[in-house]
Simulated assay, not measured.
Amino acid sequence: MQPVFRFAPSPNGELHLGHARSALINHRLAREAGGRFLLRFEDIDRERCRAEFERGIEADLRFLGLDWDGVPRRQSEHFADYAAALEALAGEGLAYPAFMTRGAVKAFAARFEDEEGRPWPRDPDGAPLYPGLDRRLPEDERRQRIAAGEPFAWRLDMAAALARLGPLSFVESGMEVEAEPALWGDVVLARKDVPTSYHLSVTVDDALQGITDVVRGRDLLPSTSVHRVLQALLGLPVPRYRHHDLVLGADGRKLSKSAGDTALAAFRAAGLTAEDIRRMVGL
């Protein structure tokens, strides 16, 4: 089987050195293996993602000397694929509409900690776990609330999923490791206004694009456990995984577009070369 790698940024800002490192590693591994290197725009957030950022990403990649195979996939053009996967999970009783907003979940956790004097569990990203209050709502009540226009999100019934699947694992850097999806609780699969989430869309996309090797930053390693559950539930192939070290800022935190970390375009404008960037990211 021909290896297939991908670089999948969100076009909601300019690429920084962390993105450059990931793109360079994926491209090198793909070409050394005689495989394909795909570009995917994860643009399900239609408010923040813009065409000019897509063009900037492509310009940055070309500046680095990278090319890609085929036409980039835009997630916003494939909502039907994710909706079909969500429908399959809901049809199996593994996804349900939940009406608690993120703010309500945070308030619930804060109230619990204040009253009980102990911490409410949090997911690997540090967000309080959803308490599951909507999981067993009567179907009539769900329909009435949805018909009334109340906002909701589709969540995965993680306990039901794991009871069906049992233990799961995946290959990380050549070694089999145990998945720990329970740490995430009932993750969001879609929202009322967007028929998908990061977890659902990336899992479906990797399968539809025939991705054999997922190489990305170490901060996304915990998410792989959720993707492994969705792969098993939907009958999708399981790629090999490799999570590389991050490029950190001077203060030790990972780089972020939202924090305004220096963009590749700014380095380009300052006269740096692609080789300069490679040295800066340790390649």
Score class of each variant (00 low, 15 high):
Leu39Ala: 02
Ile146Met: 04
Pro195Val: 08
Gly217Leu: 03
Arg21Tyr: 00
Asp45Leu: 09
Asp60Asn: 10
Gly91Lys: 05
Gln2Ser: 15
Glu58Gly: 02
Val214Tyr: 07
Glu116Gln: 15
Ser201Cys: 09
Leu230Gly: 02
Phe108Ile: 04
Phe170Val: 08
Pro131Glu: 10
Arg135Trp: 14
Ser173Phe: 04
Gly166Glu: 11
Pro3Trp: 01
Arg74Gly: 10
Leu248Arg: 15
Phe267Tyr: 15
Leu17Tyr: 06
Trp184Pro: 12
Ala84His: 08
Ala80Gln: 15
Val226His: 11
Tyr130Phe: 15
Ala85Phe: 01
Glu47Ala: 15
Asp123Cys: 12
Trp154Thr: 09
Gly65Ile: 14
Ser76Ile: 09
His27Asp: 09
Phe7Asp: 11
Val226Lys: 14
Gln2Trp: 05
Glu14Ile: 00
Pro72Ile: 01
Leu129Glu: 12
Glu150His: 03
Asp69Asn: 13
Ala259Ser: 14
Arg31Asp: 06
Arg155Ala: 07
Asp134Lys: 10
Leu165Pro: 06
Glu275Trp: 04
Met280His: 11
Arg118Pro: 00
Pro3Gly: 03
Leu15Arg: 00
Glu113Ile: 04
Glu52His: 15
Arg46Glu: 13
Arg253Ala: 13
Gly166Asn: 07
Tyr96Met: 11
Leu86Arg: 06
Leu189Cys: 09
Glu116Cys: 10
Pro119Cys: 05
Asp245Ile: 02
Val226Ser: 09
Phe99Val: 02
Ala110Arg: 15
Ala179Pro: 04
Glu141Pro: 00
Met158Trp: 07
Ala104Trp: 08
Phe99Glu: 03
Ala179Met: 06
Leu24Trp: 06
Asp67Met: 07
Phe99Ala: 07
Leu233Cys: 10
His243Trp: 01
Arg122Ser: 10
Ser22Leu: 04
Arg145Thr: 03
Arg278Ile: 12
Thr196Met: 11
Arg145Pro: 00
Leu66Ser: 04
Asp114Pro: 00
Val214Met: 07
Glu116Tyr: 02
Gly34Met: 11
Pro138Gln: 05
Leu183Ser: 14
Val281Glu: 07
Asp134Ala: 08
Glu180Ile: 00
Glu141Asn: 00
Ala8Trp: 09
Glu47Thr: 14
Leu234Gly: 02
Arg73Ser: 13
Arg55Gln: 15
Pro9Glu: 06
Ser169Glu: 11
Arg48Gly: 12
Ala147Gly: 00
Asp114Phe: 13
Ala98Met: 13
Pro97Ile: 01
Arg145Asp: 01
Ala23Cys: 06
Ala51Cys: 08
Ala98Phe: 11
Pro151Trp: 12
Leu234Val: 04
Arg228Ala: 15
Ala269Ile: 08
Thr203Pro: 00
His19Met: 05
Asp123Tyr: 06
His19Asn: 15
Phe41Tyr: 14
Phe37Leu: 13
Ala90Pro: 07
Arg31Val: 06
Tyr241Pro: 00
Asp81Ser: 12
Arg55Thr: 14
Leu255Pro: 10
Arg135Cys: 08
